[in-house]
Design a protein around this nucleic acid. Structure first.
Lengths: 243, 243
DNA sequence: CTGATCAATCTTGTATACAAGATTGGTACG
DNA sequence: CGTACCAATCTTGTATACAAGATTGATCAG
């Protein structure tokens, strides 16, 4: 197809939102080229676009990596989301019934994934709620901006995860939709601000981030011996959770 | 240098903010490559990044063009700016004295350009005010987002320009800084919202945009005969004005 | 056995070649 | 005179070649 870089671009963002790509993961040009059946040229174009969106960064002659937001960047990303998402809700003056229905259906999907213990789709759905909300607002620029910001905060959650209250997040989502349905936009905006702040507060941003943390933990004395055939499967869920 | 695409990217955005690049302008790869002394590869990389940022778009096998926002997109861009910029000011709880001084100095620069009738630098300065404000807020993500949104609204102003009250805009800027200095952040936020709305209302978004408008006007009966040696100099100011 | 040096290998950075669609100008035909 | 067709030209789309830096693993000195 003529839009292969679009496909690569979207795949990467989707994989991040689903928690399948961890921060710091290296994206080799040759490997991606083979996966997508194109030359490195197209892959590089996709990477350039992703870098402009702040999703990946390049280390000279070493490769492309999923960004690893610092604690400062993490706070900035959450602040940006709070500001924009609360602002959107506050600016609303009417929500069509079918949009409400759509959002409710989404929350119920979250619930199902939650009950079924499907961590992967749960992560994806919790992040998607915010993107759907932005979509319902009807401003394509803000939707795009929020998609990228949500991707970043998903990465942040993977890096600084301490406790993730998926159930509480879904409850918040439910209440936000209820307030919107009732026409209480200011209330919904306030709740959204609190909701995102709660997620941020649930992280361990105070701790200076140690690049070897993952390895250190694995190798700590008393850690169980690794016995799986795939000690570091890149495909499986990485455990980061979204709002 | 190793960052040529960065240089190309920034040049284009800067030229838009300064009103030197009009919406719809074609950016030929070969031409840019020669200007910057690099191969088309680097130019394409820069274009890809600019497209991801919504600054240019590509028409298959015809070339790269500065985006021409539709009336709907124009409204969305202004809405996004209102929401984010007002939200930023409302979220403030302290502005350092030197930041205030910096902003005041900027407003005075606006005044000087205004009095001197320098249309080019005036356009640039009026847009830059908002970017400096975002910078003062200290959230790099929001700063980047606003730079791109401001570039878009600058393009909108060039397309739908009806009346541009540069002096009033500068007055608004002055009053916003005064409110910030006084610690009245809610007031500053409200004024910012009104300010951006005023600029938007000053445009002719109701009129269905005619792609031939420029040409039609030039060729209208009674138009003065063209007598300059450079009937359509691409370098000079294009007349679009910013907030 | 430890540590440093160096060569082989891998990966990205950049340019260039060539294919394919779009534009343009001219020519022939009605 | 006007219109349709066609060839020459230009521009982008994609792949590939090659250069240059980074990594890795082996070899050798201490």
């Amino acid at each position: 197809m003529t839009l292969a870089y679009d496909s690569i671009e979207e795949s990467v963002v989707t994989a991040i939102l689903a928690g399948r790509l961890r921060p710091g993961t290296r994206l080799g040009e040759a490997k991606l080229a083979e996966i997508y059946g194109v030359s490195r040229t197209r892959v590089r174009e996709a990477m350039m676009r992703l870098e402009a969106r702040g999703i990946v960064h390049v280390s000279a002659r070493r490769g492309w990596f999923i960004v690893e937001p610092s604690a400062t960047e993490a706070r900035a990303a959450f602040q940006a989301r709070r500001l924009i998402e609360a602002g959107m809700l506050r600016a609303l003056d009417h929500v069509p019934a079918d949009a409400i229905a759509h959002l409710y259906a989404h929350v119920q999907e979250e619930r199902r994934a939650l009950d079924a213990g499907q961590v992967g789709s749960r992560t994806c759905l919790l992040g998607d709620f915010h993107i759907h909300l932005a979509h319902a607002f009807g401003n394509p620029f803000l939707t795009d901006i929020l998609r990228d910001l949500t991707a970043r905060t998903t990465l942040v959650s993977m890096l600084y995860q301490s406790d993730q209250h998926a159930a509480e997040s879904s409850d918040d989502h439910d209440r936000i939709v209820a307030l919107l349905a009732a026409g209480d936009f200011a209330g919904a905006a306030t709740l959204m601000d609190e909701h995102i702040r709660r997620v941020e507060d649930g992280l361990d941003l105070a701790v200076a981030r140690d690049p070897l943390a993952g390895l250190r933990e694995i190798l700590s004395p008393g850690a169980p011996a690794v016995s799986t055939a795939f000690p570091n499967a890149a495909i499986s869920n990485a455990g980061g959770e979204e709002t």
